[in-house]
Structures are given as C-alpha cells and as structure tokens.
Design a protein around this nucleic acid. Structure first.
Lengths: 328, 328
DNA sequence: CTGTTAGCGCTTTCAG
DNA sequence: CTGAAAGCGCTAACAG
C-alpha cells in the first residue's frame, strides 16, 4: 500500500481539500492554514504514508528535481569520483540520471530523458547535443562556451615540467589521450612549452585511455624510447601511466631508476602503485560538487557565470627521480 | 525553441487532433489513421522537432521509462563496471537514475525519486527500503528474497583455496570485508571450509574495502602475520588486496616470494598490478546487464523468478606461488 | 483561513 | 478513419 496514497486520500482523511494538503506538504501553509488543520493533515500524511508523486509534481511545476550527468566511461575512477562529488552536492535534494557512453559515441541521452531533467552536467566535450534552453554546465572543458567548471591543467603541466627539469630530465615522451578534448590539448601544450623553453626535447604519442592499451603500447615502444634516450614518460591520465608502469615492470625496466613517470589526475590507485605515481592532482570530487552547485543556481534562474577554474597541485611521489647517468 | 513544441502544436500544424498525433507518434496508428494523415503528422513532427514530454507521458501511462540503481561507492571499479553493464542493457530505452551512498548509510533514495522510477536495482544488501509493489532485483546478494542476480562466489572461493593448497600453502590470512553482506560471508565460509578441510589454518581479519585502509592494516599487521607463519593472504575484494600489495611492497616483502596474494573481483587494475593479481573473476558487467534485463521483464509483468547465479572462474596470475621453504 | 478550479502535456477510451 | 473528452496526481491562482 505504501506509495499508493494520493493527496485526495489524505484530504479525505483529514477532512480538508487537496489544496490544503498540498500547501502543508510543501511547507507553504504559513499564514494560510491554521495550526490545528496543519496538524490534522500531518497526522493523515503519517498514517497513510503519503508521499507526493514526483512525476505529477514535475508536470505541474515544470521542475523534475533531477539532473543528468553525461559522461564517458564511469569505469575510470576519475569519472566515478566526479559522479560521487555530484551526488554529494545533490544530497538527496535531486536525483541523478546517468547517461554513459559506449565506445566513442556520445553518451546515450535521448530527447525523452532530456525532457525529464532540469539541467545537465556535460562531461563529454564537443559531442552531445542538448536542447537549447536546458541549463548546462560543462565539466573539465575549458573551451566550452557558457558556464563550466574546469581545472587549471596548464599550471599543473608546468609544475610537472619544472619538476622533471629540476631532476635533470631533458628527453621526455608524452602520451597524449587519443581524444580531441581541450583539456588534453592544454595539458600537452603547456607541458611541451615549459619543457622546450628549457631546452628539453618532448615527443608526443597518442594512446587510448585504457590500462591495457597503454601497457601494450609501452611493450611495443620501449626499445624505441630507450634508443631515443628518453628518461621520463608523462601520461595524460593516471590510467595511461599506470598501464605504462605495468609494461615497464614486465620488461624489467626500473622506475624511476631507468625512467621516471609522471601524469595527471591522482586517482586512488596512483598512490598505491609500486612505485607510487608522481602526478598532477585534479580535484575530481570538487569538480563534481561545484558543477552540481553551479547547475543548481542556473536552474533556479541564477546568472550564467563563466568557467570556474579549480586549482591543481603536483603530488610528488616515488615514480620520478634523477635520470640515470648511464644514459646521460 | 527545440524541445518546446507540444503535441497540440504538431496537431495544429498537421490539421489533426492531438489524439491522432499521439497515435502516430507512438506507432499505434495502424488501421486507425490513414497513410496520408500519418505522413502529414510526421512531417509536422519533423518540422517542429517535436519530442513528447516524457514527464507527461509518465503521468498518463504510469511508466517513467527509467530505473534506479542503488549502489555503494561507484569509485570502486567493480561497481562502476556493474553500472556500465546496466547502461548497456538499457541502451537508451530507459534512463538510469543513480542513488549513491555516502559512508555507511544506505544509498540516498528518497521516496520522491522512488515515485519516478519503474523499478530498482538494489546493490545494497539488507539496507534500503523500497516501497512494496515496486519491482526490485537484487544484485550480488545471494540471501535476498525474490529476484536477483548473484555470483557463485563459493565455487570461486573453493577454487582459490585449492589453488593455494596445491601450491603448498598451509597458513593463510583472510581479509574479510567489514560489511555484513551475504556475498562476503559466503566467500569467507567457503574458503575457510575448503582450506581447513585440507588441514590448513585460516585466520580472518576484517578490513574496510579501501586501498589505504588495507594498506595501513598491512603495515600494522605484517610482523604479526609473519610470526604466525602466514604464507598467503586472501582479500575479499581486489581493492583490499591491492592495498595489501602496496603495503607489502613498501615493507620490501616479496610477492609471491614471501607471501602469495589472492582475491575476488578481477577489476582491471588487478591485471596490471606488479605482480598481477591471482583472483576469482566475478563478471560485473554481466551482473549489471542480466539484472537490468530481469528487471525489465519484471516491470513488463513477467513472473518473479528467483536468483540467477552467474558462474565465476579463477584467474591465476603472478601473485601466487609456492610458499617460501625458509618458512616451512 | 479554506475550498474551487483550471491547468501541466500526454494517452486512451468512446462516439461519430 | 478521426476527434472530443476524461483523466494521470499535483500545484497555484483565485474566490469566498
């Protein structure tokens, strides 16, 4: 029976009209309904276990109290952390509908589900079309027009570059993500600039954001890298770098003895890898939280402010060290 | 203007009634609406970019075309994989609302959002109350009443036990998950039984499902374990075992030289760890997919069948080996 | 202070 | 073959 009682049932039980029920249930009874009546309504609500049908409310008010998160690969702990941040910000005040993408396609976000949500959190740069008029907040997409939350990846890239430079590295290989997203372009550009400005050499290779793919790439390319005198490899994401580490370990290459490893994200696994990864920490949880808050303001009619850029920091751990003098 | 057109707009443009529009849009026009009229309606739909408001449809039909997934810690790649499986099964035909839990609380699933979905996928054993009448499918909860999809964790535990026994291990430490969930009880019980039956000794310790927590525990307990003559440690989940591996690596303990490591799940990281983890593979993606399919049938009025149990398999990799003879 | 009433946008009988 | 009309359950003017 739970969940079945309707407002009219409550009204009948309390001897009032549905309008009155609606007012007290929505806390809009102040100065409109007498205390005594309110009490009677509340009692009826409790007895019947009444809960307003959210679908009907949505139709009547135009507010569904739910937002969508369009993302790619929730299997990447980084994305999962973003989702956790979003969920934390929502805290039960709204529900989260997840639209995940498969392969290289944009997330499955049908127009039907679009008509259900109040706004969308877009973590899929470039792709997905969202009906104009729907509030949208872009995540980790610095080039996106309109409101968004992103990271200062360039500052992070430069810090990582300087760290490598200070250690004495002069030949680094950058593993870019095989996706044309602004966040990745910026990581690469900033890292490359900082490194080349100091006279170091950086070559880029593209690699899918996948443990095994990065691992295979490393197995296939290591000989080449070594002959090139590469002393440090930087991945665009921890996932890739962890894959590289796996390949290197399998090949018996010492890290950071023979090669240093650096990357971006700081997912939980980065800290427990052997060796633990030196990485640019991008606060994923906060990204999700802030984005959800921003979207909430937008939905409530707030002004459409621009991008909020979150500060990042370099976390130096064990995967970076001085380059082997044997190769100097 | 996109997303704003209503059925009445389409009706006006096509010179028909909203009823007719509804019929052709929903593919129920066969034998009710002439081909010519249908064509006119379709043209109007295309010109106006009409998409039915899902909320209104939901109110009218009682079907929201969306289901909820109540889960804990999407940050665990295992859970993320389950979600991916669910999303794959839905394939845009329904939307997925995510209810995540924070800490030890049941997932945030308010009655309001409950009234929005057609059914729920429950991946939170024991806890969450879902209104009776709402179709529910339990995930990875073998003791759950009613429909569900779970793993044959006992067979997996026994296979792992035999593998350890064959290698020569006689003293193992089991790191149970600090959650009173049936799936974990079964893993522990089956492993313990199989091991003790062969005369081996197993001691259990409880540990949160968290990389750092497992790592700290290992750092604190290793001396004790070693003095006890432990030659193998089995974690209830890969996350825990990966944490143990991290602690052991930090302590300079060789794996599998000094201790062998085994666990359950087979998340992607298990395969790239150094050494790669020997683990009982629980097909998470399939769990999600099957559960979503089952829920779909239930929602469509199908019979409530019992638990579907998915077969599991032991994946032997590098973290297990013969126990050190020095400790024999 | 409280009830009546007109929608929200769509589906679906029921007449015609 | 097509349209009028009655809801789905709730909200929010507007009267009283």
């Amino acid at each position: 029976m739970a969940g079945r009682a309707r407002a009219s049932d409550v009204a009948a039980r309390a001897g009032v009209s549905v309008a009155t029920v609606s007012f007290v249930v929505n806390g809009k009874a102040r100065g409109r309904v007498s205390e005594a009546t309110q009490e009677r309504v509340r009692a009826a609500v409790a007895e019947l276990g009444y809960v307003a049908n959210e679908t009907a409310r949505a139709l009547a008010t135009g507010r569904g109290h739910s937002i969508a998160l369009l993302a790619h690969d929730m299997t990447n702990p980084f994305t999962a952390e973003v989702a956790a941040g979003v969920a934390a910000a929502l805290a039960g005040r709204a529900s989260l509908v997840l639209a995940l993408s498969t392969g290289d396609q944009a997330p499955a976000f049908t127009d039907a589900t679009a008509s259900t949500v109040d706004g969308v959190l877009l973590n899929w740069p470039g792709g997905a079309t969202v009906a104009t008029g729907t509030p949208v907040v872009h995540l980790d997409d610095p080039d996106a027009p309109g409101p968004g939350v992103c990271f200062d990846v360039e500052a992070g890239a430069r810090a990582l570059a300087r760290h490598l430079l200070d250690l004495g590295h002069r030949r680094v290989r950058y593993l870019d993500a095989a996706r044309p997203w602004a966040t990745f372009t910026r990581r690469r550009t900033a890292l490359t600039e900082e490194l080349t400005r100091a006279g170091a050499d950086v070559q880029t290779e593209r690699c899918g954001i996948d443990l095994q793919v990065a691992r295979e790439l490393t197995l296939a390319r290591w000989d080449h890298w070594r002959r090139d005198g590469v002393t440090a490899v930087v991945g665009a994401t921890d996932i890739q770098t962890l894959g590289v580490l796996s390949g290197l370990t399998q090949l018996g290459v010492a890290v950071p003895g023979e090669v240093s490893l650096g990357s971006f994200d700081d997912i939980a696994f980065a800290a427990v890898a052997g060796p633990a990864l030196t990485t640019v920490r991008l606060p994923a949880h906060e990204l999700g939280r802030r984005a959800a808050e921003l979207l909430g303001e937008l939905i409530d009619g707030g002004p459409a402010r621009g991008q909020v850029v979150l500060p990042v920091g370099l976390v130096v751990r064990e995967s970076t060290g001085a380059p082997s003098t044997l190769l100097g």
